[in-house]
Each structure stands twice: as C-alpha cells, then as structure tokens.
C-alpha cells in the first residue's frame, strides 16, 4: 500500500523510467499495471489485429472444411479451423483488458473490423481456390505465423506472452496437419502435383509479405521499432523472413516444387537469402481491404452478423432479466 502511494505521487516521467527499467529487467507487465499510452496503444493495435486475423483467417480454410476429401481430412480441418477461432477468442479477451480503461469492448473491435477501421493480416485477403491452398495455408502460413509468434513469446506484456504460448503449441499441430496434406499431394498423381505447384505460385508473394516490409521506408509506416523498443518482440521483419527461408526453402525444394523466383538462393558470403522483393505497393492495397477476397470475406461476416442480430438481442434480454 505504501509503495503504491509512493508510486502514484511520481511524475509521468518517473513512472515511465520505472516502467522501462522493469521491462529491461525482463519483468512482465500485467493488465492493471501502469503503462505509457504509447505502449498500451501499440499493444491494442497489435493484439486486436492479431485477434481479427485469427477470425478472418478461419475463412479461407473454412471454404474447404465441408469439401475435405476424406473423413480423416474432414475431421482434421474442422479441428484446425476451430482452433483458429479459439485463438481469436483468447486474444479478444487479452485486448479487452487493455481497452477497458478507454471504455471500449470486444464489440468495438468486431465492429471496427466490419466497418474497415481495423485491418487484418495480408494473407487472409487471398483466394484459396483449391484443396492444395488449404494444405499450403496450414503448412506455410501457419509455419510463418509460428515464426512471428515465437518472436513474441517473451513479450514484455504478460497476458499476451501467455496467450501466445498456448497459440504456438497449437500452431505446431496445424503446421503438421498442413504438411501432411502437402506430402499426400506431392507424392500423388500428376494432377495433384500440379495443383500443389499452382498453389505455391499463388501464395509465394503473400508469404513474403506476411513478415511485413523490411523498413518503414518501404511503406511509410512500420510498428516494428516501437514493438522492439518495448520488448514486445526481438527480431526485425527481415530477420524473421530470413529465418522462414532457412527453414522452408530447402523443404520446398526437397518436395520437387519450384519457387516462383529464379533469383532465390543463399549467399554464403553474406550469410543470407537473396530473393526478389514482393510488390509492396500491392501489399498496401491488400491490407486496405482491396485484396482479391477482402470484400467477399468481410461481407460473409457482415451477413452473419446481421442475420444473427435477433439472437444477440434475445441473449441481451435474458442477461438483463437475469
């Protein structure tokens, strides 16, 4: 109590200094702790975007849930998409606590998504026209997600770090589920192999974009500096992209697939992968909800939201009466 009294008497600069000392010492910040507005805002943006990306991320794969080609695959992909919704729910809870002092709730996040004030991850704006796309999302998109999320497992914000721990554990299963679909296709008939190569061609650029632009110069904005300063993450976008190449490029080649970038190679002297930059202008367009499937998928959620309005109303009435 005495310590708290002393803390409240500190100036904002002193509070900030203490806060930075805590995170630099590797301490975890909890929901009720004092935090600078910049930190809170960065976290809300990051976590709300992560949450809605999980929810929107369920949609490209959802297209393939009823169509999965065997009982085993049907069960596998149902469980996988359900997990993604579960991650969305978990992250919304984390974001809600951060937003509470601002008088905002989960409804605000979901409405911001539908009204296009909140962006979702670039990969989930892309089309998934074949079963191979469903496999590739599991294998490489979830594989990429594991890399970016592992990078934040030690995030200074405790509730997010703990949520990510659970999410990452499940993502590992998803990557295995995706890999299993991919292996069946890679070892399958000529048509199946072609289907797989076409899916890789379609997804390659989106996978490069997944990690974000290398510097703020590329797109005008980048949150990576703030998130690194506050120890929310450790590696830069480019370091993560290089890690992704190191893990997956040899595997992709080993399956007999061609990466749609003839410049792709590992430069031993520089110790890094050389690759063709994706079109970052296109990236900006995609995350502004002008990607190939952005509007269609948002519309799907809007329709469901409108369609179920009476259910929310009824539940509200039950709660008030209770």
């Amino acid at each position: 109590m005495a310590a708290m009294m002393t803390f409240t008497r500190l100036s904002d600069e002193e509070k900030y200094e203490r806060f930075m000392q805590r995170i630099e010492a590797g301490e975890k910040i909890e929901a009720d702790d004092w935090m600078p507005d910049e930190y809170r805002t960065a976290l809300i943006k990051l976590i709300a975007m992560h949450a809605v990306s999980e929810i929107m991320g369920a949609l490209p794969e959802k297209e393939w849930v009823p169509k999965a080609p065997s009982l085993r695959r049907k069960l596998g992909i149902m469980a996988k998409v359900q997990d993604e919704m579960g991650h969305g729910q978990l992250l919304l809870r984390v974001a809600e606590d951060l937003m509470a002092p601002l008088g905002k709730t989960r409804e605000d996040i979901l409405e911001d998504l539908l009204n296009e004030r909140l962006k979702f991850h670039n990969v989930f704006h892309m089309a998934a026209p074949t079963w191979a796309d469903a496999g590739l999302i599991g294998w490489l998109v979830d594989g990429a997600a594991i890399m970016t999320q592992t990078n934040m497992l030690d995030a200074s914000y405790g509730p997010y770090a703990r949520a990510l721990k659970r999410i990452c554990a499940e993502e590992v299963f998803h990557a295995q589920h995706g890999e299993s679909i991919i292996l069946a296709l890679a070892e399958g008939t000529k048509e199946q192999k072609e289907m797989l190569q076409e899916a890789l061609n379609r997804w390659w650029e989106a996978l490069l974009m997944f990690f974000g632009p290398p510097t703020a110069d590329t797109t005008g904005t980048s949150k990576q500096d703030i998130t690194i300063k506050y120890r929310i993450r450790t590696k830069t976008n480019e370091q993560l992209r290089q890690d992704f190449f190191t893990k997956y490029v040899p595997r992709i080649w080993a399956l007999g697939l061609k990466i749609p970038d003839e410049t792709m190679h590992f430069d031993k002297e520089k110790g890094q992968w050389i690759y063709r930059q994706p079109d970052w202008e296109r990236f900006k367009e995609i995350i502004r909800n002008n990607g190939p499937k952005s509007q269609e998928r948002l519309e799907l959620r809007r329709t469901a939201y409108k369609q179920n309005a009476w259910v929310r109303e009824a539940l509200g009435a039950v709660r008030t009466a209770g």
Partner: peptide, 11 residues
C-alpha cells in the same frame, strides 16, 4: 463455421 451468433458458440 465462422458464422455462428458469437465466437464462443462458433467454437
């Protein structure tokens, strides 16, 4: 999937 009245129900 993805269309239920709320996220908890979806799960």
């Amino acid at each position: 999937l993805g269309l239920a009245p709320h996220i908890e129900e979806d799960i």
